[in-house]
Amino acid sequence: MKTRYTYGGDEHIYVEIDDEMSLDAFFIALSLSNMVREANIPGVTEILPANASFEVRFDPDVIAPDAMMEKIKAFEHQAEAQEKRLDTRIIEIPVYYEDPWTHETLMRFRERHQDPTGSDLDYAARINGYETVADFIEAHHSQPWFVSMVGFVSGLPFLYQLVERDKQLEVPKYLRPRTDTPKLTVGYGGCFSCIYSVRGAGGYQMFGITPMPIYDPEQKISYLKDFMAFFKPGDIVKWKPIDRAEYDRITQAVEDGTYTPRIAEVAFDLDAFNDDMTGFNAKLMEALNDA
């Protein structure tokens, strides 16, 4: 890890634990940002944990920027030594891959894409060395994912696949971001999957769509009554491929208020996971069977 501290204007300090993604960097960023939060430093107004970095917003009229920087740096070693373990949950998210809505959108923004001749999935499968789109889709949903960041817009989760680095899928973001993305698009950029919580701009490749809303400002959807945004960092996700009929059925169930996501409580321990990824993932996914 080569932790880097920098200012984002006069109100933000940005801490990059590592310039590359790893769960180790995620856990250090989470620990360090939690320590800053728990220290209740006067002047700190907001703390944003991200994949392998985090950001502190502060009021420079209350604490000088260099003093703020020193306070964060002082926690670095302690944060690196923290246990990399979380009590969390695994959630099954249905995905309708190659759906008509993201397809229509990606065709509209073709000139902003690396490969204007095919679809985003054609491109992603090819550059990741998969012979067919179906093989690529299989690789996308066969192993679970870890929510390593929530943000961009309205509770959007960034997900990191729980597999060895050489099995990670990687794609670039669009050359220029789109001005439109359908609501609940399952996207991909860098090594991250995401779910676009609302319709809007976006730079990630588009693979499919989920019928399960993850953001509801009116808090009417049964599982969003407690809070309007569904995801938090540390959540684990298993994608479940579905077809159009299943998509329509779930959409209707959500509308009727009868849809309940499949969720099971699990613990995530980074060392145990690193020792035996396949075995650890199998246990995570088994927990869903009882949900």
Partner: peptide
């Protein structure tokens, strides 16, 4: 790793 291949890409941050 994780950033994406365009030189303007980074591992998604805040």
């Amino acid at each position: 790793f994780g950033a994406g291949s365009d030189p303007s890409n980074i591992v998604d941050g805040c």
